[in-house]
């Protein structure tokens, strides 16, 4: 019994290692990743510097805005799982039918591989970015250990939500066949509703209320706002759990529906 468990654990770890190793081949690509992220952060730095020059009565001070922008860019390096892309490929090449019928869970494989990939990106993209930006722009971070720990938990749960969300998108691409449309829509949605570029507390009142009902803020704004501004950590966690459950059932439901459809069509 224990052997079976440790066997499966090793299998999952192997997936993670594959994901990690796969990225190591593209060293130059990684440098470019860091460079482009750094360029983006620097644009934001100058923009916000110019904005705050005239004094701004926003909820975020200039320093906090810098912290937000840098942290958001770092997060974006390693919280996307690529599940939608991988499933999209399977849909397009038609191998989805085979994979879904196999006993070994392909969804697990995607998840653990993504962990490996993102561990790599966390270490080799986000960390260098942090170092360069702190050095270049004097961004300061002062956090207690507990805050950081709770932040990590929030990010962890957000990761699970993102994974399920991208899984859902990938499965949806079965209906539109090509992934480009869904992918573009995903980008649009994330840009505005997740607080990727601007903290949602800077949005006008009416929009802020609407965005609050959507789960996307849990990807960037909710954890980041907790980290920088503090607030009710448990409340964010509860929301994340709720949405994870919603996503989980949506994915399961869609998977079953697809399976039925594929069986009827003959794969």
């Amino acid at each position: 019994m224990l052997r079976k468990f440790s066997g499966r654990l090793r299998l999952r770890a192997a997936f993670a290692r594959i994901g990690f190793a796969r990225n190591q081949v593209y060293a130059i690509a990684t440098y470019i990743n860091v460079l482009s992220a750094f360029l983006f952060v620097s644009i934001q730095y100058f923009l916000w510097k110019a904005v705050y020059e005239n004094g701004v009565a926003g909820t975020y001070s200039f320093k906090e805005m810098l912290q937000y922008v840098l942290a958001a860019e770092m997060l974006s390096a390693f919280i996307h799982t690529g599940a939608d892309r991988q499933i999209g490929i399977m849909v397009r090449t038609g191998s989805l039918a085979h994979v879904i019928l196999k006993p070994v869970s392909f969804t697990e494989q995607i998840f653990f591989e993504s962990l490996g990939v993102n561990l790599y990106r966390g270490l080799f993209v986000a960390l260098p970015l942090l170092v360069c930006s702190v050095f270049a722009f004097g961004v300061e971070y002062h956090f207690g250990a507990f805050t950081l720990l709770r932040f990590a938990v929030l990010v962890g749960f957000a990761y699970i939500f993102i994974y399920l969300f991208e899984l859902l998108l990938g499965l949806l691409s079965f209906f539109s066949v090509n992934t480009w449309g869904i992918n573009s829509m995903k980008l649009a949605v994330i840009t505005i509703f997740s607080g990727r570029v601007l903290p949602i507390s800077a949005y006008p009142e009416k929009l802020r209320v609407a965005v609050d009902y959507l789960p996307f803020k849990l990807m960037y704004f909710a954890p980041l706002d907790y980290l920088i501004k503090g607030g009710d950590w448990a409340e964010v966690l509860v929301q994340e759990c709720v949405w994870i459950v919603v996503m989980f059932f949506s994915v399961t439901f869609l998977q079953r529906a697809l399976l039925k459809k594929m069986v009827i069509q003959g794969g």
Binding site: F175, S176, V177, N178, T179, W180, G181, I182, N183, S184, M185, L187, A188, T191
Partner: peptide, 15 residues
């Protein structure tokens, strides 16, 4: 891929 095309067009504009 008609459906996908129009979703994508709308999405790009939206983005």
């Amino acid at each position: 891929y008609k459906l996908d095309f129009f979703i994508g067009l709308a999405a790009m504009f939206l983005n």
